[in-house]
Amino acid sequence: MVGAPMTFWAYLLRCADNSFYCGHTDNLEMRMNQHQAGQIEGHTRHRRPVALVWSQEFPTRLEALEAERRIKGWTRAKKEALVCGDWQEMSRLARNRQVAGRPSTSSGRTDVGTRAEDHA
């Protein structure tokens, strides 16, 4: 008997202080409960309650992690556009960033600066 394929999620939370937190998981419901209960060390623990404002399903953990890392490199304005589903604004913000000549932080590379605690 073959098990069901595993699903992975990248997600974006809006915290009580209006900041964003981006993460990835293989169990979105459980991870949300952990964030709400303050069981996750770091950014969200003292910024509760949190609200799930965006999530996307991925077939592999690597793809979910790459999405998380890309989004973490985005500006607040681009994250807001993602939450609103404003693809035109996201595209405009991406073009403006390229025109400004700033280096991209959204390469999705997963081999630099990997820490075990980032994947909890």
Score class of each variant (00 low, 15 high):
Leu82Lys: 11
Gly42Ser: 07
His35Ser: 09
Ala37Phe: 03
Ala64Glu: 07
Gln88Gly: 10
Ser19Thr: 15
Lys78Asn: 14
Trp54Tyr: 15
Val83Lys: 11
Ser91Gln: 13
Val53Ser: 06
Glu63Asn: 11
Arg61Asn: 11
Phe58Glu: 08
Leu28Ala: 07
Arg69Ser: 05
Arg69Val: 10
Arg31Gln: 13
Glu68Arg: 15
His46Leu: 12
Gln56Cys: 06
His24Ala: 07
Lys79Leu: 11
Trp74Asn: 07
Arg31Tyr: 01
Arg47Ala: 10
Asp17Val: 02
Lys72Ala: 12
Ala10Thr: 12
Val83Ile: 15
His24Pro: 00
Ala64Gly: 13
Ala67Pro: 05
Ala37Leu: 10
Pro49His: 10
Gln88Thr: 09
Val50Asn: 10
Gly85Cys: 12
Leu82His: 00
Gly73Cys: 06
Leu82Gly: 00
Glu29Cys: 04
Val53Gly: 05
Pro49Lys: 12
Thr75Ala: 07
Val83Ala: 12
Lys72Asp: 01
Cys15Lys: 10
Gln34Gly: 05
Asn27Thr: 05
Thr60Cys: 04
Gln39Pro: 00
His35Met: 03
Leu65Arg: 11
Ala51Glu: 09
Asn33His: 13
Val53Cys: 13
Met32Lys: 08
His24Lys: 06
Val50Ser: 15
Arg47Glu: 01
Gly73Lys: 03
Gly42Leu: 08
Lys79Asn: 04
Asn18Trp: 02
Arg31Ser: 03
Gly38Asn: 09
Gly23Phe: 03
Gln88Ser: 11
Thr44Met: 06
Val53His: 02
Arg76Glu: 08
Tyr21Leu: 05
